[in-house]
Simulated scan of single mutants.
Amino acid sequence: MATSDPVYLRVVEDIRRQINDGSLPPGAPIPSRAQLTRKYQVGETAARHALRVLANEGLIVGRVGSGHYVRERPDLIPLHRWRHLEHSSPFAADLQSQGRRVTLDRHSEQSEAGPAIAQRLRLDEAAPVAKTHYIYRDDGKALQLATSYEPLELASDDDRRSLIARMYAHGIKITEIVERVHTRVPQPSESDALDLPAGVHVLHVERTHWAGDRPVETSDIVIPGDRFQVVYSLPV
Rank of each mutant, 00 (worst) to 15 (best):
Q229E: 15
H68L: 05
L36G: 05
D139M: 12
I30V: 13
L95G: 02
H84V: 03
D220P: 02
G140D: 11
I177T: 07
A46L: 08
R33W: 00
G171C: 03
L196S: 00
I15E: 08
R184H: 02
T208W: 02
R137W: 11
L196P: 01
D226Q: 07
H68I: 03
D139P: 05
D5P: 00
I135N: 01
S111R: 14
V222T: 13
R17M: 07
E86N: 10
D220S: 14
G65V: 10
P215H: 06
V12D: 07
Q18M: 12
R52F: 04
I172Y: 04
Q144Y: 01
R122C: 10
L9T: 08
A46P: 09
R184Q: 12
S89P: 03
S111V: 10
A165V: 08
A118R: 04
M1G: 14
V12R: 06
V70T: 08
L194G: 03
L95E: 03
Y232G: 01
V178K: 11
S233E: 14
T218H: 10
D213F: 05
R122Y: 08
P197Q: 07
E179A: 12
H80Y: 15
H80Q: 12
P197V: 05
A211V: 02
R83A: 13
E109A: 05
D220R: 15
I164M: 06
L143I: 03
S189C: 00
L145G: 08
K141N: 12
E13F: 09
R38K: 15
K173S: 11
D5Y: 11
Y134Q: 11
P78K: 09
A126K: 07
P151M: 08
A211I: 04
V202P: 03
L104C: 11
D75W: 11
G43V: 04
G171E: 03
E179R: 12
A211T: 01
V64C: 01
A193T: 08
E150Y: 00
A28E: 09
R48K: 15
V12G: 09
M1I: 10
L9W: 12
L163N: 13
V53R: 11
E176I: 00
P74V: 14
I172R: 04
L76Q: 06
E72W: 07
G140I: 02
R48T: 15
T218C: 12
A28L: 06
I77V: 14
L123N: 10
L54K: 02
R184S: 09
S108N: 11
H182E: 14
A142G: 04
R101D: 14
N56K: 13
A198D: 13
L143C: 05
P215A: 09
Q18P: 00
S233N: 11
